[in-house]
C-alpha cells in the first residue's frame, strides 16, 4: 500500500519531465539507435493500450458478434458497433450500484480529508506528550493489510446492526484511509511557514480558526492529491464491498463480480459495466494527473 518516504516531491517531475540536455557524442549514438527506440516504444505503447481498447470494443458489440469473431475485426466492420449493451445495462439494476459507489466514495473522501487534516495539523504544529511516538504508530499502520480487520469488524458490525450498510462500508474505508492521509498531510503542513501560524496565534485566534482559515487553505495542493487518491481507492475497491456491503448496497465492483461466474455468457454486461466503472476514474486521472503524480511522489502510493 504505502511506503513511507520523505515528501521531497519534485514539483516539475512526473509526467512532464523535460527532455534532458545531451552532448554531441551521445547525440550521434542516439541518432543511430533512435529509430529502433521509436519502434520499441510504439510497440510498448500499443501493448499497454490494446487491452483497454479491447474492453471498449467488446462492450460495444453484441454477444453473438463477440462469440463469432475477435474484437479486432472491428477495424474492417465498424458497422457492428452498438450501444445496446449499455442500454441494457442501464435499464437493469446496475444504475443502483453506480449510485451506491457514489454514496460510498464521496462521504469517505470528505471524511478522510477532514479527519486526517485535523490530526495532521496536531501532529505538525501542536506540542503534546507522546507526539512523535504516536506519529510513528501512524507510519506503522500505513501498510497494515485490510484482511486483518475483516473478521473483527464483521462481528462488531453484527453487534451494532450496521453490517451490510453503506455507513459501515464508509467507516471501514475512512479508518483504513487515515494513516496515509495523516502521513501525507502532516508532511505537507510541516512546511507551512511558522511565522503565519505564530502571527495568528499572537492575534489570539483559536486553534480551530487557525486550522480552518490558515492551514486548510494553504494545504490545498496536498489535500487535492489526497482527495483524488482516496476517491480512486474507494471507487475501485472490491474487497471491502465484498464483505461489508449487502446486495442492496453493493457498489459496481461487487455487482460486476457477482456476474463473473458465467464470464462467457455475461460478457456483454461485464464489459460494458467494467467500462462504465472506469470512465469516472479515467476522467479524474486525465483532469488531475498532476495532483495524482504529486500525491504518489509524496507518499509512494497505495
Amino acid at each position: 500500500m504505502t511506503t513511507a518516504t520523505a515528501p521531497a516531491a519534485p514539483p516539475a517531475s512526473g509526467l512532464h519531465a523535460g527532455t534532458p540536455r545531451r552532448g554531441l557524442a551521445s547525440r550521434i549514438v542516439d541518432r543511430v539507435g533512435s529509430g529502433a527506440i521509436q519502434v520499441i516504444m510504439v510497440l510498448l505503447g500499443l501493448f499497454w493500450l490494446v487491452p483497454t481498447l479491447g474492453l471498449l470494443v467488446v462492450s460495444m458489440r453484441s454477444v453473438e458478434v463477440n462469440n463469432a469473431e475477435g474484437w479486432w475485426t472491428v477495424f474492417t466492420k465498424p458497422a457492428e458497433l452498438t450501444l445496446q449493451n449499455y442500454a441494457n445495462l442501464l435499464s437493469s439494476g446496475f444504475t443502483a450500484s453506480f449510485w451506491n459507489t457514489v454514496a460510498i466514495t464521496v462521504p469517505t473522501t470528505i471524511l478522510v480529508i477532514g479527519i486526517a487534516a485535523m490530526a495532521a495539523y496536531a501532529f505538525a504544529w501542536m506540542d503534546f506528550p507522546g507526539r512523535d511516538t504516536l506519529f510513528l504508530v501512524v507510519i506503522g499502520l500505513l501498510i497494515v493489510p485490510i484482511q486483518i480487520a475483516l473478521i473483527p469488524i464483521a462481528s462488531l458490525y453484527g453487534n451494532l446492526q450496521i453490517f451490510g450498510t453503506i455507513p459501515g462500508v464508509v467507516l471501514f474505508h475512512v479508518a483504513f484511509g487515515l494513516p496515509f492521509a495523516i502521513f501525507l498531510l502532516r508532511n505537507f503542513f510541516v512546511g507551512i511557514p511558522s511565522s503565519l501560524l505564530e502571527a495568528a496565534r499572537m492575534d489570539g485566534a483559536s486553534e480551530w480558526k487557525i486550522f480552518a482559515t490558515v492551514v486548510f487553505p494553504l494545504g490545498k495542493p496536498a489535500i487535492a492529491s489526497l482527495g483524488i487518491f482516496q476517491f480512486l481507492w474507494v471507487w475501485n475497491d472490491m474487497l471491502i464491498a465484498l464483505v461489508f456491503a449487502d446486495a442492496g448496497n453493493q457498489p459496481m465492483t461487487k455487482a460486476l463480480q457477482s456476474q463473473m461466474r458465467q464470464f462467457g455468457s455475461n460478457v456483454d454486461i461485464l464489459s460494458s459495466g467494467a467500462f462504465l466503472s472506469l470512465i469516472i476514474p479515467l476522467i479524474l486521472f486525465f483532469a488531475f494527473q498532476r495532483y495524482f503524480v504529486q500525491g504518489m511522489m509524496a507518499g509512494s502510493v497505495k
Partner: peptide, 12 residues
C-alpha cells in the same frame, strides 16, 4: 498510456 491502468479498478 502506461500510467493509465493505475486509475482503473483491479476489478476492471
Amino acid at each position: 498510456i502506461v500510467f493509465m491502468p493505475m486509475a482503473v479498478s483491479l476489478m476492471a
